[in-house]
Design a protein around this nucleic acid. Structure first.
Length: 215
DNA sequence: AAGGCGATTGCCT
DNA sequence: GGCAATCGCCTTT
């Protein structure tokens, strides 16, 4: 029997408070590991556990906010708890959690997650081209939620979520009741960037099989 | 106005 | 490991 805390219909899944997002962004990034991301996809509740993130800071050459507010990045300046979604390479959506106070321009990219609830719907959302077989004995791992674009596709996240907040009934980040020990968290340089490549702002759960790639 | 490049993914060799 | 897909932002004419 599964823990009642992990049931997405449970009213205990209250959104994390705004103050959670006002701490130092690197600290928020670490704190997001092990937290739950809930999305109501049409009428289906979807719940995942965040296992990999990247921080993008103020005065950070790799951050979309580096050159100030623009038509794309304006939600990054809307304050802690805002959802910032952008279209990556004209193909994939990437979802960020905005941190800090208004006009600061810092956020955390959600890169990978483990499925908790609604896995069948997520798998259907991830069917592409020939389709992936998630039935039977085939074990979905990185192909389901292991990457920022895969995660949004599985959850049905798109530009309609851009600029909203994570304090809503159909879009929220929640406490799953467990603490992630510091020894289970690892860090590395961020993936796929060409600027500020030395900064180790990627954080992930060391032993998770759901990462976008191995450590 | 035009061209380069990007916080990615999936297919091909 | 290489590379196309595909759109919007940013820099350069």
């Amino acid at each position: 029997m599964s823990s009642p805390v992990l049931c997405s219909a449970n009213p205990r899944l209250n959104p994390l408070p705004r103050k959670f997002y006002l701490k130092d962004t690197l600290e928020v990034a670490r704190s997001l590991l092990g937290k739950g991301l809930f999305v109501l996809h049409k009428t289906t509740p979807l719940l995942v556990e965040i296992v990999e993130v990247e921080a993008y800071l103020d005065r950070d050459a790799a951050s979309h906010s580096f050159r100030g507010k623009s038509g794309r990045n304006w939600p990054m300046f809307e304050g802690g708890g805002t959802c910032y979604v952008y279209l990556s390479y004209g193909v994939n959506y990437c979802m960020n959690v905005v941190t800090q106070v208004q006009d600061r321009g810092e956020a955390v990219l959600l890169r990978a997650a483990a499925p908790l609830d609604g896995i069948h719907t997520m798998a259907r959302n991830r069917e592409f081209y020939g389709g992936i077989d998630f039935t039977g004995d085939s074990k979905p791992t990185r192909a389901l939620l292991g990457g920022p674009g895969k995660l949004t596709q599985a959850l049905g996240v798109n530009m309609s979520h851009n600029g909203r907040t994570f304090f809503e009934d159909d879009l929220k980040i929640v406490d799953l009741g467990g603490e992630v020990p510091a020894r289970e968290i690892a860090e590395s340089p961020r993936i796929g960037i060409s600027k500020a490549t030395k900064k180790r702002y990627r954080f992930f759960m060391k032993n998770s099989p759901w990462l976008s790639r191995r450590a």
